[in-house]
Simulated assay, not measured.
Amino acid sequence: MVRHKVARSVVVDAPAKRIFDIIAAPARHSEFDGSGTVRANLFGPDRLERGSEFGMDMKLFGVGYRITNRVVEYEEDRLIAWRHFGSHRWRYELRELSGGGTRVTETFDYSRGLPAFYVLMGMPARNGRSIELTLERLKAAAESEGS
């Protein structure tokens, strides 16, 4: 059993490269964010790579704030993960399927920080719902760009 991680997957009718291009563009994060917390990209590169830092304008529980993220895992067209000052990570893994399409798995990994705090705040269930919405939006964006 995986502890202190929340993950969901979706199959997208698009090549991994197209999907990865969307995820690796921080200016597009608010477009597919299903949590409603990501407002806008404040600074950083147009395209993320390992070690990139990017700032986001956020809003949680009605309170606005800004956060700086850093890419900590990266494999072109396959894997990207970032974290901020907290130790938890948001991770996207893409795997092209032999029958066509790409399986995209998003994981919120809160095992490195204060897991008990996240559980107490109800974050695993909330993040699970947000990830499902994010993946729906990402799927729609990637599939519409191919038509």
Rank of each mutant, 00 (worst) to 15 (best):
H84N: 12
F85W: 07
F85N: 09
F85L: 08
G86Q: 15
G86Y: 09
S87E: 13
S87A: 14
S87W: 10
S87H: 13
H88W: 06
H88I: 00
H88E: 08
H88G: 00
R89E: 14
R89N: 05
W90E: 11
W90L: 10
R91P: 00
R91C: 03
Y92D: 09
Y92S: 09
E93C: 02
E93A: 14
L94H: 04
L94A: 06
L94K: 09
R95F: 00
R95Y: 00
R95A: 09
E96W: 02
L97R: 15
S98Y: 00
S98F: 01
S98T: 04
S98E: 14
S98D: 08
G99M: 07
G100E: 06
G100Q: 05
G100Y: 08
G100C: 06
G101T: 05
G101A: 06
G101E: 09
R103K: 13
R103F: 01
R103S: 00
R103N: 03
V104G: 01
V104I: 04
V104P: 03
V104N: 05
T105D: 04
T105Y: 01
T105Q: 10
T105E: 13
T105A: 02
E106W: 01
E106T: 03
T107A: 13
T107V: 14
T107K: 15
F108M: 09
F108C: 04
F108I: 05
D109Q: 11
D109I: 04
Y110H: 03
Y110P: 05
S111N: 08
S111R: 13
S111H: 04
R112G: 05
R112P: 03
R112A: 12
G113W: 04
G113T: 07
G113E: 10
G113S: 11
G113M: 10
G113A: 12
L114F: 05
L114E: 03
L114Q: 07
P115E: 13
P115G: 13
A116D: 08
A116C: 01
A116V: 11
F117Y: 14
Y118A: 13
Y118E: 08
Y118F: 15
Y118Q: 12
V119T: 01
V119F: 02
V119R: 11
L120W: 13
L120D: 03
M121V: 11
M121E: 07
G122Q: 12
G122E: 14
G122M: 14
M123A: 15
M123I: 14
P124V: 08
P124Q: 10
R126Y: 06
R126P: 00
R126F: 07
R126E: 05
N127A: 11
N127T: 06
N127V: 06
N127Y: 11
N127D: 10
